[in-house]
């Protein structure tokens, strides 16, 4: 996935889409927005839409004592809710803080003390969440699998593409195959100097960020004073 900081307008649609897609309980959010407002000589307002990076060398997989967290052949890191014991080692070990332990208090309903909405009731059937286990963004693996089964292409066909990517009004999120040099994601990373968050951890995240100046946003803009944030170093 590639996240374009040039146009993301901090609208929270991606966050809401994921909550709808996965019937997330009130205390749970898989994607998050990190807002940056720097004060160098020129302030820069940036919003990083972050979620599990699906690291290719994932510490969470390494530390999981049960094997509940594993990497699928396509690279997506998934958690098997039936195997997770809730030890939270992965929560602590994910250097990007992208995992959340679903404790009882996070498993809040929409309107605590009031009715369960029809939508919540449906969610309990369609997408049950297990209290006491750990969760995170799974790149909408269910959606991708269902799409692939229909012969669709992730990142191109909507039905095989993550919900947050589909909904983004800024088209700031691009999904696709990093191994395919001709894919849109590969092109963006190449041409617009995509960078990963904290490459020095050696985790090889599958999410890249790009930035630029509006007006030449298809070319890398060297004079943009955007924060080269989360990059190796200090």
């Amino acid at each position: 996935m590639v996240v374009d900081l040039t146009v993301c307008s901090r609208c929270y649609a991606c966050v809401a889409a994921c909550r709808v897609e996965h019937f997330l309980p009130m205390g749970m959010s898989w994607p998050k927005l990190v807002a940056l407002e720097t004060n160098d000589d020129h302030p820069i307002v940036s919003t990083y839409s972050v979620r599990c990076n699906q690291c290719q060398d994932a510490p969470c997989v390494e530390v999981c004592p049960t094997g509940a967290t594993r990497q699928r052949p396509d690279g997506i890191i998934v958690i098997d809710q039936d195997k997770c014991v809730g030890c939270r080692y992965c929560v602590v070990a994910c250097p990007y803080q992208n995992r959340t332990f679903l404790s009882k208090d996070k498993d809040r309903g929409f309107f605590p003390g009031k009715i369960h909405t029809d939508f919540e009731k449906a969610g309990k059937e369609l997408y049950p969440h297990q209290v006491g286990t750990t969760e995170k963004c799974n790149f909408c693996a269910e959606r991708i699998d269902a799409g692939l089964a229909k012969g669709l292409k992730p990142g191109i066909d909507r039905e095989a593409t993550p919900a947050c990517v589909n909904t983004c009004p800024a088209r700031a999120l691009t999904f696709g195959d990093l191994d395919d040099p001709d894919s849109e994601v590969s092109r963006l990373i190449r041409e617009r100097k995509g960078f990963q968050l904290h490459p020095e951890y050696g985790t090889d995240p599958s999410i890249y960020f790009i930035d630029g100046k509006i007006g030449c946003s298809d070319k890398p803009a060297d004079d943009i004073k955007a924060e080269k944030a989360g990059v190796a170093g200090k």
Partner: peptide, 24 residues
């Protein structure tokens, strides 16, 4: 009779995008 999902309609001029208010 129960709404289980909402998302943008790709076959409209807004191309399947929606904001947080609409989704909520």
């Amino acid at each position: 009779g129960t709404i289980t999902h909402i998302e943008g309609n790709p076959d409209t001029p807004t191309k399947g995008t929606m904001c947080s208010k609409g989704l909520s």
